[in-house]
Design a binder for these strands. Sequence first.
DNA 1: TGGAATGTTGGAAC
DNA 2: CGTTCCAACATTCC
Length: 249
Amino acid sequence: MPEGPSIVILREQAAAFAGHTITHAEGTSTGVVMAELAGQPVLNVCTFGKQFLMRLGDRALRVHLLMFGTYRINETKDAKARLSLFFDDDSALHFYTCSVKTISDDLDAEYDWRGDVMADAWSPALALKKLRARPDLLVCDALLDQDIFAGVGNIIKNEVLFRIRLHPLSAVGDVPAAKLRELVAQARAYSFDFLTWKKAGVLKKNWLAHTKKICPRCDIPFERGHLGKTRRRSFFCGRCQKQYPAPAA
DNA sequence: TGGAATGTTGGAAC
DNA sequence: CGTTCCAACATTCC
């Protein structure tokens, strides 16, 4: 479910709740006081990276779907909801298997929107600055770092690195400047392709690297491994994805 | 059917 | 005290 673009879809679907008032809240989450939510208006909904945010009358709710989280609108799943919100027009929003937290309603103080690859405020220059400050960071870890690329997940990581022909074990400080700019640009560009494909139900069909066995460019087997400090799955072509610095022979 | 996966966190360990 | 590491959590699919 949950890389940044999927959360954007959630936000678009939940936009209909803005302007409505919560009449009742229930669920197993310990991150909110259910009784305090009744009567609160939904002022607006937004996202930061993989987080879904709802600004209410006197607080905001942060929902993170983690790896397995799901949600339903105007219907329920056969499972206990972490948080169910019922609204004054009899609509409802249910979250399952997720982390729910109550946070300050001053979202501009909580988040630097320039760090969200899906945001209008996304700043490639700021991302580059953060990257240059960490030359030893491997690019496979850099893309997953939510302080640099909020919203990017493991699928986007693999697809971006394949797209720009960059080996996942390359060190940020050794990647040529132009290639690093490409990395930043494609972190956003691929995320929007992801969004388009996810909406059309053709996301998997468009994967070129993630979970793939053969490189579509070289027609040779992909390498795979749990790389970097994050130890997340990497799928990459040892021939067309260049490594910086070149590995010792 | 056990293992692994679109992820983060909190606390232990150093 | 700061940084790093790893177990824990949870659902679904193969």
